[in-house]
Structures are given as C-alpha cells and as structure tokens.
C-alpha cells in the first residue's frame, strides 16, 4: 500500500453528459440533474433519468446545502491525498434529495457528527476542474437526532 511514487490527485475527464456539472463547478455552482417527469433530482450525472429512462434531464443550480448522512476517516490515503491523511470522506444528503460523497474540509475530525448541516465548498484542481468538497454550515442548526 505504501507507494513511494507520489501520484497526483486524479482529475475528472468530463463527457458530454457531465460537462454542465463541471462548467457549474468552475463558477462555484453545484449543478444537479432534474427529472421534469417526476420532478425529482438525481446524482451522479448521466445521460438518462434513473426513474423514467428518458434523456430529458434538465440542469439546475442548487443550494449546495444538506446534512451529513455518514462519514469515514481515511487513514490509508489514495493517490494525491497523502498530505491530507487522515482525512474525512462524507456522504451528504442534499436538501434536494440526493446524496453526494465528498471530502469534508475546514473541520476537525473530532467535530464531525452524523446529522450536522453542511454546505458545498470548492477546491481548484486545474484550470478546467474545480472540485466539490463540503464544510460545516455553521449558520444552520442541526436537525434534532432521530
């Protein structure tokens, strides 16, 4: 597992179906695909609605806010994350009703708690790619624990 050759963090290669997501990210907007038939969002981006099979999805800029559904602390880093380890990977349930897996930044490991409010944050990886991460949304109150 210990690799002496330090590899860079992998860069996404957008496709026609995902380009709008990355165009939004570059402007600091979290774009999600919205299904006009069921009036629901879905994630991750792809060519078709997972509910109807139609290729009629629309892109909408979203709030980028949600609640932490789960998290894991990564002790064995993947390529490009060596300097960050240990780091937190979170699964965030966005207010739009989808879940997204992302790095949690600007938070101490001991302060991470399921149910806490989160908001999107951005990390510039290259001229073309700005990547999503999440950070605590300190202005929001957490929902009471179930």
């Amino acid at each position: 597992m210990a690799d002496t050759n330090v590899k860079p963090r992998p860069l996404p290669k957008p496709t026609p179906a995902t380009q709008a997501f990355w165009d939004g990210a570059k402007k600091g907007k979290l774009m999600l695909q919205w299904d006009p038939t069921t009036k629901k969002y879905q994630f991750w981006p792809r060519a078709n609605s997972v509910r109807t099979g139609k290729r009629n999805l629309q892109w909408k800029a979203t709030s980028g806010k949600g609640e932490l559904y789960s998290f894991t602390i990564t002790h064995v880093p993947t390529p490009g994350f060596e300097a960050r380890a240990p780091y937190v990977i979170g699964m965030i349930e966005l207010d739009e009703g989808v879940r997204i897996i992302a790095n949690l930044i600007n938070i101490k490991i001991d302060d991470v708690e399921i149910g806490m409010r989160m908001k999107v944050a951005w990390e510039k990886l290259s001229d073309d790619i700005t990547y999503f991460a999440f950070e605590p949304n300190k202005r929001a109150k957490s929902k009471p624990k179930k």
Binding site: P10, P12, P14, T74, P77, G80, M91
Partner: peptide
Amino acid sequence: EFWDPVGVQGPPGAFGL
C-alpha cells in the same frame, strides 16, 4: 469523475461509510 478524485479508499471506504 465522482469517486477517484474524492479520495475514497475503495471498498474499505465504502464500507466505512
């Protein structure tokens, strides 16, 4: 696009979550 650049430790990462 949505997994490798996040730094998830593969299946152990998914099972951690």
